[in-house]
């Protein structure tokens, strides 16, 4: 075969591979759109929660997986998003679609505010500060009772599906969440593929080298912090829509740690990690809780340690490796 023909052949193979990726994505999307019509409302609710966690983990992944900055306090941004939406709905009777940008802006601002001092902190000090913030938020929410409803929390009406859709409440909430999640995934993906994404990866892999290459550390780290907080805030807002109730005890420090655990198991720094982590955070506790109240914690703890030893890229990395080796054996035959 001549060189040109070879190049053409490999080019077309590449094109098939690229198309296959889009076909798989389309099939997956079709499946996620079809599922709520086949499942009982409780399952639809569970998958809605998976998507919400996935959006929050998408944010955490941007910070931890792609920029290499640790956060033990992402539950705080989640809570800020949830409470912003809840307070707007409860006290100002804002139409609910308007709460989403408000929650995003509030969480973004908070992320920026903490991102500025956090730029000066490394590794474990950052972990300490973010952990302290997550711990401090709960008493703070309880304290400002007139606005936040104190320990009792706020109960809200859930969004009502418009008549023209003909959907039940759970299905409507599912599709709302799905739409936000897909947009969040696509936007984050394109950000990571841009020059910003490369700068973040450079910071993660070697800060000094990145700085020498002309990456402005403080700018990109703060941006990553704020963007990541914003996604967590959006997830919090969706949470308020779906649950229709917020209380400080839903956002204790365990939430932050669970989010980190889910991300680590799902896959740090991978595109599918947040979704797998969302599935993990939602279903592992509800399955293992039937054994013992403490079982989810035992499973989480052991899995985190095990994943860090044997598969630092998490479930997503394992799945990728499995797919690769299957492909290789198939090609050999």
């Amino acid at each position: 075969m001549s060189e040109a023909a070879e190049a053409r052949a490999s080019g077309s193979r590449w094109r098939v591979a690229a198309n296959r990726r889009w076909i798989i994505m389309a099939l997956l999307l079709a499946l996620t759109c079809y599922a709520p019509f086949q499942l009982v409302p409780f399952r639809v609710f569970q998958f809605t929660m998976v998507l919400i966690y996935a959006v929050a983990l998408l944010g955490l992944n941007l910070l931890v997986g792609h920029t290499g900055q640790i956060s033990l306090g992402h539950g705080a941004y989640f809570a800020v998003g949830a409470y912003t939406a809840a307070i707007l709905l409860h006290s100002w009777h804002v139409p609910y679609p308007a709460t989403l940008p408000a929650a995003a802006v509030a969480a973004f601002a908070l992320g920026l505010a903490f991102g500025v001092p956090a730029v000066r902190l490394r590794g474990l000090y950052l972990a300490l500060v973010t952990l302290a913030i997550a711990i401090f938020l709960v008493p703070l929410l309880k304290r400002f009772e007139s606005v936040t409803g104190g320990s009792m929390g706020l109960t809200l009406a859930k969004p009502v599906p418009p008549a023209w859709t003909g959907l039940a409440e759970d299905q409507w909430l599912y599709f709302l969440t799905l739409a936000v999640a897909v947009v969040a995934f696509l936007v984050t993906r394109s950000v990571l593929r841009s020059r910003v994404g490369r700068a973040l990866h450079a910071i993660r892999d070697n800060e000094a080298a990145a700085e020498v290459m002309g990456v402005r550390l403080s700018f990109y780290k703060t941006l990553s912090f704020a963007w990541s907080a914003m996604l967590a805030g959006i997830a919090g807002c969706l949470y308020t829509w779906v649950i229709g109730y917020v209380s400080p005890d839903s956002f204790v420090v365990t939430l932050s740690i669970t989010l980190l655990a889910g991300l680590v198991v799902g896959g740090l720094g991978s595109y599918w990690g947040p979704l797998l982590g969302g599935l993990f955070v939602m279903f592992v506790p509800s399955i293992s809780q039937s054994v013992n109240d403490a079982a989810p914690g035992v499973v989480f703890g052991l899995l985190i340690i095990a994943v860090m030893y044997v598969a630092p890229t998490g479930l997503a990395g394992l799945a990728g490796r499995a797919a690769y080796s299957i492909k290789k054996t198939l090609r050999k035959e």
Binding site: L72, I257, L260, A261, V264, A294, A295, P296, G297, V298, F300, G301, L302, L303, I304, I305, M308
Partner: peptide, 9 residues
């Protein structure tokens, strides 16, 4: 942190 969760549970 994994150890934290595990020992607590």
């Amino acid at each position: 942190v994994g150890l934290f969760i595990f020992v607590n549970a």
